[in-house]
Simulated scan of single mutants.
Amino acid sequence: MVKFFGGPVAGSSLGLPYAQTVLLTVAGMMTSVVIFSIIGRAFSKWMSRRRREKQKPVFSKKNRRIVQVWQRFGVIGIAFLTPIFLTPILGTVVAALFGAPKKHIFIHMLWSAILWGAAQTLFVYEFRDFASSLF
């Protein structure tokens, strides 16, 4: 649920079939999406208070890039980048903060999870034999 790439790696190390690993990876991301789209704004307020206490800058380089992606591509861009650059939690909270309807968040995060889950699992499964031959 937290780190998307962990699903394919865990599935491979457990010896699960490719399709099952993809489904479990997608299910993990979508669980985060459902939970954090419901509590997204409340979680964001909590994070803001926490950042102020630690004196972290609100407009970091990462935050500026997220805003640029949102302005150019909207929820589709955030969903596309969530599995590879953001965590499912952060991507969902960002989409909720910018006011994307929950239905759009679910739909776009789902296709993104399927696309990246299949691609990353294929990558891990193809190169696990290569990696094991090295060691």
Results as ranks from 00 to 15, higher is better:
residue 1 M to D: 04
residue 2 V to E: 01
residue 3 K to F: 14
residue 4 F to V: 03
residue 5 F to A: 03
residue 5 F to M: 03
residue 6 G to Q: 09
residue 6 G to I: 09
residue 6 G to N: 08
residue 7 G to L: 07
residue 9 V to Y: 10
residue 11 G to Q: 07
residue 11 G to V: 06
residue 13 S to D: 05
residue 13 S to Q: 12
residue 14 L to Q: 09
residue 15 G to Y: 05
residue 17 P to D: 15
residue 17 P to T: 15
residue 18 Y to V: 02
residue 19 A to R: 05
residue 19 A to E: 07
residue 20 Q to G: 10
residue 21 T to N: 10
residue 21 T to W: 12
residue 23 L to P: 00
residue 23 L to N: 01
residue 24 L to F: 13
residue 24 L to W: 13
residue 24 L to E: 04
residue 25 T to V: 04
residue 27 A to F: 08
residue 28 G to A: 11
residue 28 G to T: 05
residue 29 M to C: 13
residue 29 M to E: 02
residue 29 M to H: 08
residue 29 M to I: 04
residue 30 M to A: 11
residue 30 M to C: 12
residue 30 M to L: 15
residue 30 M to R: 06
residue 31 T to P: 00
residue 31 T to A: 12
residue 31 T to R: 00
residue 32 S to L: 06
residue 33 V to Y: 02
residue 35 I to N: 06
residue 36 F to W: 14
residue 37 S to Q: 11
residue 38 I to Q: 01
residue 39 I to V: 15
residue 39 I to P: 07
residue 41 R to I: 10
residue 41 R to G: 08
residue 41 R to N: 13
residue 42 A to V: 13
residue 44 S to T: 03
residue 45 K to M: 14
residue 45 K to S: 14
residue 45 K to A: 15
residue 46 W to F: 14
residue 47 M to Y: 09
residue 47 M to N: 02
residue 47 M to P: 00
residue 48 S to M: 15
residue 48 S to A: 15
residue 50 R to N: 13
residue 51 R to M: 15
residue 52 R to M: 15
residue 52 R to S: 15
residue 52 R to K: 15
residue 53 E to W: 12
residue 54 K to Y: 14
residue 54 K to G: 13
residue 54 K to T: 14
residue 57 P to V: 07
residue 57 P to L: 10
residue 57 P to T: 03
residue 57 P to F: 12
residue 57 P to C: 08
residue 58 V to F: 11
residue 58 V to Y: 09
residue 58 V to T: 09
residue 60 S to H: 07
residue 61 K to W: 14
residue 62 K to T: 05
residue 65 R to D: 08
residue 65 R to F: 15
residue 65 R to S: 11
residue 66 I to S: 04
residue 68 Q to L: 15
residue 70 W to A: 03
residue 70 W to I: 02
residue 72 R to W: 12
residue 73 F to Y: 14
residue 73 F to K: 13
residue 75 V to S: 00
residue 75 V to M: 01
residue 76 I to R: 12
residue 76 I to F: 14
residue 76 I to A: 13
residue 77 G to K: 10
residue 77 G to S: 13
residue 78 I to M: 05
residue 78 I to G: 02
residue 80 F to G: 05
residue 83 P to A: 06
residue 84 I to P: 00
residue 84 I to W: 08
residue 88 P to H: 12
residue 91 G to I: 05
residue 93 V to F: 06
residue 93 V to L: 04
residue 94 V to Q: 00
residue 94 V to N: 00
residue 95 A to E: 01
residue 95 A to Y: 05
residue 95 A to C: 09
residue 96 A to C: 10
residue 97 L to P: 00
residue 99 G to L: 03
residue 100 A to E: 02
residue 100 A to N: 03
residue 101 P to Y: 13
residue 102 K to V: 07
residue 103 K to M: 05
residue 104 H to A: 10
residue 104 H to R: 08
residue 105 I to N: 00
residue 107 I to V: 09
residue 108 H to A: 07
residue 108 H to M: 08
residue 108 H to T: 10
residue 109 M to L: 06
residue 111 W to L: 09
residue 112 S to P: 03
residue 113 A to H: 02
residue 114 I to A: 04
residue 116 W to M: 06
residue 116 W to D: 00
residue 118 A to C: 13
residue 118 A to K: 04
residue 119 A to C: 10
residue 119 A to L: 12
residue 119 A to G: 09
residue 119 A to R: 02
residue 121 T to R: 02
residue 122 L to R: 01
residue 123 F to G: 01
residue 123 F to L: 13
residue 124 V to I: 12
residue 124 V to Q: 01
residue 127 F to N: 02
residue 129 D to G: 14
residue 129 D to N: 12
residue 130 F to I: 06
residue 131 A to G: 08
residue 132 S to N: 10
residue 133 S to H: 06
